[in-house]
């Protein structure tokens, strides 16, 4: 079993207007086998948390720690973090000209495993995973995310999750912008990865909709750069009924 531990994390970014504090003391522990939903309104800092774990250079960690089985994640480069077992499904996957999906997936798999995958089984695995996510075979020869629709991009993020088999998956609004059919396909993919065992999941979402398909063990309400409340799946139901207004009012009152 592995543990991803975030302790009292403070993160800021520097913009033209100056330094802006975004995360204000986030603490969260995720173990493999667990699924944590992080729910919160737009602008509360969910993507910042996800990007900081992955090591995006834009974000400055002012204090606090992130460790993976005791290892200092913040000391690792972006690619080292991925090789250590962290995976970020991005809210806005970028397009990469000149690199086909096939080439990209093989290169990533080789980097993560430290050796090239056996060609025969690998090709079969990729084909199967694509079929399960209802991705047309022709996508294998297309450039990474180039000209993909929003839904196609999200499916490809989950394709990578299934093929790269990380220890921890951070899914940043993988559900947003999907129609119901696509949402089901994507959720099934995540559930397959969870069912294989040994995966800890941080499911970041704005809506409760995806929680009908992916069952969280824990729910954290994220407001203004911090966790405002935590609970079990029942907390998600309450959010569905009440929305975030209550928390926002609180945040304003204390501001």
């Amino acid at each position: 079993m592995s543990t991803l531990e975030i302790k009292d994390l403070h993160v800021s970014i520097t913009t033209e207007q100056g330094v802006k504090n975004i995360l204000k003391g986030v603490s969260l522990t995720i173990k493999t086998g667990e699924t944590h939903a992080i729910m919160g309104p737009n602008g509360s800092g969910k993507s910042t948390l996800a990007s900081t774990i992955a090591g995006h250079p834009r974000y400055t960690v002012d204090s606090g720690s992130i460790t993976l089985d005791g290892e200092d994640v913040l000391a690792m480069t972006v690619d080292q973090r991925a090789r250590a077992g962290l995976f970020l499904a991005m809210q806005y996957p970028v397009e990469i000209p000149g690199v086909t999906m096939t080439n990209f997936l093989r290169t990533a798999k080789t980097a993560i495993d430290g050796e090239a995958p056996k060609l025969r089984t690998w090709t079969k695995d990729v084909k199967e995973a694509m079929a399960q996510l209802r991705i047309e075979p022709e996508f294998a020869q297309r450039n990474v995310n180039e000209g993909f629709s929003g839904g196609e991009k999200k499916r490809h993020e989950i394709l990578q999750l299934e093929l790269l088999k990380p220890k921890f998956a951070i899914l940043d609004e993988t559900d947003s912008g999907l129609d119901v059919d696509a949402l089901k396909v994507v959720s099934e993919g995540v559930n397959r990865a969870i069912a294989e065992g040994g995966l800890g999941t941080m499911l970041i979402t704005h809506y409760t909709r995806i929680l009908r398909y992916i069952k969280p063990d824990f729910v954290h309400v994220f407001v203004d750069g911090n966790i405002a409340e935590q609970g079990g799946p029942e907390l998600a139901d309450r959010l569905e009924d009440e929305g975030y207004d209550r928390y926002l009012a609180d945040a304003q009152a204390t501001a």
Binding site: A54, T77, V78, A82, L88, V94
Partner: peptide, 14 residues
């Protein structure tokens, strides 16, 4: 940088 970040986030060295 965003393209680089994406590829690195999949384990690929810079």
């Amino acid at each position: 940088d965003e393209q680089l970040f994406y590829l690195q986030a999949r384990g690929i060295p810079e």
